[in-house]
C-alpha cells in the first residue's frame, strides 16, 4: 500500500490515507505526552531500577511507534520489518556484550589465560 496509483487516487486509497492521517495525529500527541512523562519521571522519588525500567520501556515504545506508523512498517511488507529488526537485535546483542566485557574491572592475574 505504499505506492499511489498513477492517475487520480481512488476512493478507497483516499479513505485509507485519511485514516492514516488520524493515526499520525494521535501518535504525535502520544509521543509528546510520553516525552513529557519521561522528563517528570526522572525527578520523582522512585527507586532507580524502577525508573530505569520504565524509561527503557517508554523509549522502546516511542522507537517502535515511530518505525511502525511514521515509517509505515505496519502498512508495508513484512520483509522490511524483519530486515530492520534483525539488524536492531544484532546491534543490541553485540553492544550489550561489549558493555558487559568492559565490566571486568578487577582482573585476577591468574585468570588471564
Amino acid at each position: 500500500m505504499s505506492s499511489s496509483p498513477e492517475a487520480a487516487p481512488s476512493q478507497e486509497f483516499l479513505i485509507e490515507e485519511t485514516r492514516r492521517y488520524h493515526h499520525f495525529i494521535t501518535l504525535a500527541l502520544w509521543l509528546a505526552v510520553v516525552t513529557g512523562a519521561e522528563i517528570v519521571l526522572i525527578f520523582l522519588p522512585i527507586p532507580m531500577p524502577v525508573v530505569l525500567t520504565i524509561l527503557s520501556l517508554m523509549s522502546a515504545g516511542k522507537f517502535f511507534a515511530v518505525i511502525l506508523w511514521f515509517m509505515h512498517l505496519i502498512y508495508d511488507k513484512r520483509l522490511l520489518f524483519w530486515i530492520f529488526v534483525a539488524a536492531l537485535m544484532l546491534t543490541f546483542a553485540t553492544f550489550s556484550a561489549l558493555l558487559a566485557l568492559f565490566s571486568v574491572d578487577v582482573l585476577d592475574p591468574k585468570w588471564i589465560a
Partner: peptide
C-alpha cells in the same frame, strides 16, 4: 527536552508530507 520535542514534531510533519505526496 525542547529540542527533543521539536524533533518529534518534525517527524510528525514529515509523515504528513509523505501522506500528502501519496494523495498528490
Amino acid at each position: 527536552s525542547f529540542s527533543t520535542f521539536i524533533l518529534l514534531m518534525s517527524s510528525f510533519l514529515m509523515a504528513l508530507a509523505v501522506s500528502a505526496m501519496h494523495k498528490g
